[in-house]
Design a protein around this nucleic acid. Structure first.
Lengths: 227, 227
DNA sequence: GTCTATACGATGATAGAC
DNA sequence: GTCTATCATCGTATAGAC
């Protein structure tokens, strides 16, 4: 199937089987979700045998993780680059909390309105946080731990004097707010009575930053602003 | 199977088949999640025939919705009662934002550490927000719309002068923060470096209230508190 | 109206030949 | 590495007993 010609010449291997599976899986998962997409749909779309997915990946869940990791890595790399810039600009001063939040959010939101076949992908990321199973044990050290290791000190530098536990609570809530925005569509439109467009990431970014910054400051520092 | 005795006396029907299915489904869904629980597990646990679940409920998804609605209704009723009290205390003054948030959060958090077999249930509620499918079209008018209709004006009364769209964004983010706390366990412990106990709802409530209040105020009103 | 027995097509996974 | 063949299990549908 991969052999385009039966000559001795090395065939122009446009796409490896493994990558074709990943591409088709990503596309179908984005369009129909994890559960609604069968391995047979994926292998048919990829023009690959069904058993190949169990050879390259052990299970459907592992395939899902592989799809997610492949998209997550450039996002996380971008996050770290942006954080580098924020820290470089700040010098020895405390970091801007809004700038740190922006470095965390911008790469994900950029992926939301990127091109063609990936446009629905962030919905998967949003759902990822609430799916059960042991996926976190496998995906976390590889994808989240490095980002967390850099952003946790950054948040402390942005909120000097705040207790670490309170920052952690605030980060947890903030991740939930972000994931819910990424995953959801209909609810936002309902709750704003049709005023907000879920696909307008340019409108979402400043609001997410403002909301998270206000929440983090309230939970860590000056508690009672009282209206 | 439901006939405990073969006399003419009306048997002491301890549990109806329909309720036994709901009870078993709720228990198993809470423990293992929706996808990982098969209808055969449920009917076996409930000591009921497999086809009974398709007689009383049409499909597995409808069963899930029935399980959720059964738990959600008393929670929402409690929310409205608490909101009544908040409004009664306020008189003609603006509402306390923290009090409104407390009325929204307390009933859900109470369900989190309630008794026995339901203790894992809120994880389902947390996941519900991010599950795909058309569940919202069916569950929303019945369960969410009445609560939204009462709380949306309450938030406006608690933040006079704020634009409705911004309040909507803030409510959306807040729902995400709440859902992520309800659904998640491991991530909170990681992000707080073991300092926070996800099952300690008494610790979570004031922090959720403070975070949401700070976020809502930042997104609607005085934007720049600047550290 | 309630419930049971039984069957159907599709799924994720695996073993073994090439 | 790849493919065919096969497996147990899944959600669902139906015919018929009480």
């Amino acid at each position: 199937m991969n052999q385009a010609f039966d000559t001795d010449e090395a065939p122009i291997r446009v796409t490896e089987t493994k990558d074709r599976i990943l591409d088709s899986a990503e596309k179908l998962f984005s369009e129909h979700g994890f559960a609604a997409t069968s391995l047979r749909q994926i292998t048919t779309e990829a023009a690959v045998n069904l058993a190949a997915v169990n050879y390259h990946f052990q299970s459907k869940e592992s395939l899902i993780l592989a799809v997610l990791l492949r998209k997550l890595e450039p996002i996380n790399q971008r996050r770290l680059e942006l954080l580098d810039e924020v820290e470089a600009e700040a010098g020895d001063d405390p970091l801007s909390l809004e700038a740190v939040l922006g470095a965390f959010l911008l790469p994900v939101l950029e992926a939301k309105d990127s091109r063609v076949q990936l446009c629905n992908f962030p919905r998967l990321m949003g759902r990822m946080y609430t799916e059960p199973g042991d996926w976190m044990l496998r995906i976390f050290p590889q994808a989240f731990a490095p980002v967390l290791a850099r952003f946790q000190p950054a948040f402390r530098r942005a909120m000097p004097g705040a207790e670490i536990e309170e920052i952690g609570w605030g980060m947890h809530f903030s991740i939930g707010a972000m994931a819910h925005y990424l995953a959801g569509g209909a609810l936002l439109k309902t709750v704003t009575m049709g005023m907000a467009d879920p696909s307008d990431t340019a409108a979402a970014l400043p609001r997410l930053v403002a909301y998270m910054a206000g929440g983090l400051r309230a939970i860590t520092g000056q508690k009672e602003i009282s209206q």
